[in-house]
Nucleic acid binder design. Sequence first.
DNA 1: TTGAAAGCGCTAACAC
DNA 2: GTGTTAGCGCTTTCAA
Lengths: 338, 338
Amino acid sequence: MVKITDVARHAGVSPSTVSYALSGKRPISEETRRRVERSINELGYRPHAGARALASSRSAVLALAIPLRAGVHIPVAMGFAVSVVTAARRHDHDVLLLTQEEGEDGLRRVADTALVDGLIVMDVQLHDDPRLPLLRALDLPSVLIGVPADPTGLTCVDLDFRAAGELCVERLAALGHRVIALIGSPPEVYVRRTAFAQRVVQGFTAAADRRGLSSSVHPCEATPAAARLVAEQLLREQPALTGVVVHNEAILTPLIDAFEDLGLRVPADLSLTAICPDDLAETLPVPVTSVAVPSTEVGAGAVDLLMRKLNGTGHTPETTLLPPRLTERASTVARATR
Amino acid sequence: MVKITDVARHAGVSPSTVSYALSGKRPISEETRRRVERSINELGYRPHAGARALASSRSAVLALAIPLRAGVHIPVAMGFAVSVVTAARRHDHDVLLLTQEEGEDGLRRVADTALVDGLIVMDVQLHDDPRLPLLRALDLPSVLIGVPADPTGLTCVDLDFRAAGELCVERLAALGHRVIALIGSPPEVYVRRTAFAQRVVQGFTAAADRRGLSSSVHPCEATPAAARLVAEQLLREQPALTGVVVHNEAILTPLIDAFEDLGLRVPADLSLTAICPDDLAETLPVPVTSVAVPSTEVGAGAVDLLMRKLNGTGHTPETTLLPPRLTERASTVARATR
DNA sequence: TTGAAAGCGCTAACAC
DNA sequence: GTGTTAGCGCTTTCAA
């Protein structure tokens, strides 16, 4: 194994000079820098991560706690994970994966052992998430993906789901729809009061009320059967329905199928907007007008905020909400005036 | 920060005794052990990961390289990742996430810096995977999820996809079906010759030939439109078709829909078996007879093999193929003799 | 602009 | 069964 002293000897400098050449933490003459770089390449030197962590009390590793619970759409979660890893690498950091199963203990463990420099936590509950007191108490910086009811003392990033819900309603209202429904996440998501699902409902309801639209909200399991039931119920209870907002990635296709089976064509009879990743919206049988869940931006944002906290650079707001962006596709049209 | 010397002082023993009490690498008297444990708990001691890694040249971290490419079903990949993390924790190890994007460089980096003790690599190509020479050359132990054409010098685990393909055919044959088709993964999966897709085809074809069945193979994009096209093509080209094997998680639902739209009821007119995770097979509109992709077992197996290599315990076979297990559900029936 | 040297906190010989 | 101690490879004062 090549170590820093080998490089130093080879370049005819001291180990500290090699270290500083690598970190840039003090000025190095152009010539020395070159010599050091040449030696590093020639010898194939790679600093030992553990030694570095011990000496600098920085591991260059971030922990990411990913959700596994029912109701979380897996590809969406994976999208976040990948974007976090990619963004972390841009800052020369690696990412350690923690599962929900380990919960607070896992977070505490990697923090206490100095395995990681910071924490990113996904799928935060709106109320009483047991991890939040821990995060506030820990001396390690952390960022949440998702916004709890009380973000005091925390740093949170997410799509502005409330605004996303509003945006969908505004669009439907602008198209002349007067009776609308929100088909949401599975009941368990609301029961444990996950922040984002809740907020969509708030935005949806507020915008509908503001516009004087008749509206209703329907949680829905992530199964085709449940989708069909909701479709039937809607048809029965709200025959005047012409606009639907769907916030449930897993049932978009079965839901559209169910509506069509029941004689409601999308978009001719029923306009539909969704809150889901763009690639999903694009590849559905009917391309769906949607507000994107921008996993790449959210993941990158979380990492950037965390790095800022780590470096003590600049201010970190408690809450960063990414503005929703609606893309018009084939599933929405102006209401036929009958 | 509490360190080992603090614990030692508090317990009235030497630092090495604390260390050995923790690692169990040398016998400790019952009484001493108790005192040490008490001090550890009282002081809230947590060994510093970096210091440990430096002194022991073991980081207790494994790297997992996850695929992101087109054609890889995300929930399946995520299932592997979660099971790897869970299994690693059982061995007191953590898991570092590497994306495909980083490729060989990422593997080399975490290996050379001693960030990790071992590598687990998913989504191995059948031929010329550029990472394999690297894995063979590295002094770090590694395990592949997936089996390349030449596993010499490697350690691989996977479902026995060939046997899975055979098992599906055998089942259809036993039910009296004589004309069958395999609807497979997207073309790009075959082009880059990912091991598992290839092997299903081999097993399917071999078993069909052995049984004297008429058979055909059809790659299929992971979109509903592509599924419909394949369904139409099959109906046109093989009107006598009564059995189908599907190895493409993403299109199971649209495919069944397409067949039914074309007047082929599952299972009345067409028996269907799939190779996919059990939870998917169970929740489809028609519960589908399937061979499970046992992500939990595969992930746990990969970790166990890696730990065995790390500890130099016992023999590690080059290839470990998990036997397929077929679960009969509603999508298969005996062929109606017409 | 550079070097010398003191640790960082732990493990694992080695000694008893 | 337990203690002493020399490192592990790096960073970062301190000094020049």
